[in-house]
Nucleic acid binder design. Sequence first.
DNA 1: TTTCGCCTCCTACTCGAGTAGGAGGCGGCG
DNA 2: CGCCGCCTCCTACTCGAGTAGGAGGCGAAA
Lengths: 217, 217
Amino acid sequence: MTIRVLVADDQSMVRAGFRMLLGNEDDIEVVAEAENGAEAVDKAARFDPTVILMDIRMPEMDGLEATRRILAADSDARILILTTFDLDEYIYEALRAGASGFVLKDDPPEQLIAAIRTVADGDALLSPGVTKRVIKRYARTPRPGPPIELDELTAREQDVLRLIAQGLSNGEIGEQLFISETTVKTHVTHVLQKLNLRDRVQAVVLCYQAGLFDPDE
Amino acid sequence: MTIRVLVADDQSMVRAGFRMLLGNEDDIEVVAEAENGAEAVDKAARFDPTVILMDIRMPEMDGLEATRRILAADSDARILILTTFDLDEYIYEALRAGASGFVLKDDPPEQLIAAIRTVADGDALLSPGVTKRVIKRYARTPRPGPPIELDELTAREQDVLRLIAQGLSNGEIGEQLFISETTVKTHVTHVLQKLNLRDRVQAVVLCYQAGLFDPDE
DNA sequence: TTTCGCCTCCTACTCGAGTAGGAGGCGGCG
DNA sequence: CGCCGCCTCCTACTCGAGTAGGAGGCGAAA
């Protein structure tokens, strides 16, 4: 089955470049082009592409907003964000918008083509330069001491910690768990003692830095 | 310049497989093998490899601990984590330990070789299946309201927010910024008002969920 | 059965956080 | 110049967070 591609970029040179580049691949076909975000949203609906190459900086509507709208419209297109600038803000916002991947325009051509096939397959992808950045976000947390002995916490204490990490007050936690605020305080105290923290603020910081309780599932 | 590789895996079959696989590449040379973590640490120091293929599950010392030790010893080897299981916990812990990348043993051979070259070049890399997972961690945060108008905060207020997000108390923030705790409180109040939050705990949650102030730089 | 850990809840207390409201200094801008 | 926004600092107050210490119930393991 051929991969149907929509190229959304405001520079016609870039679009032509992709047509040329992808023309040689017989499993990939450029079915439409768009020169701004609004047009991309429209054509995504009409041409039902497998993959959308989406520039970020575009007139009318930028690529991030277009990405959000296309996915909100229940399209099953995979969106590959494409940009010259590898600025951090873009990356995270794009991923949050629901993009499946991220490549830089000056990545080598083979890599771009490989990227298209990868996301078409349903896999996600970040170009190496981008991946490096993402990894750096994880390659932190040089906390001293043991790796976080979450196991030392009882089930109830973990429940409480989870809710603390969501910003709830003791009273709110009590309501959630159907126990009194007093009891919540008891659990909080134990959590702080066991994890050697001063207050709930530090507990929140720890949870996030350690990647605990992230909405993975 | 040839890429010097150290293969650390407890199964000799796997090590032999890599020797075979990499033997055909004339820019890659397997300079040593290790069958447990302790041995990997030792040989990393003695053979000065460019890239270390590191299994996670190994007797004596696991690959994560070995990774930490090798990097703690100031080696400039790039470590590529290698495992059969693509369990989440491993990924994040491995990246936190300082690994440059992560591949699954059943990734196609070409991909493994490409991965070695990629990390040797200084780029970071996650195999597609893994990348998907990492992306999922970012593809959340459907916060309501405006995208977070950080700009609405004055420079000082941003300073304070940054320190709040690190778990500091008002007094500690005052020390850091050389201002009185009273003044810090004033800033905190303004931050909370502007961002429409109840207390500093929610501010911390917001910062992390929005990806603000992460130690990227 | 006795012991032990966990969960529950309580009072009484301390202390940091946050609010309210005001005030002075400083620099930019019309 | 005068206004205004920002930064600084203050008092006085309220309230939630966290500590200390104790207590009862319950289920599992010795």
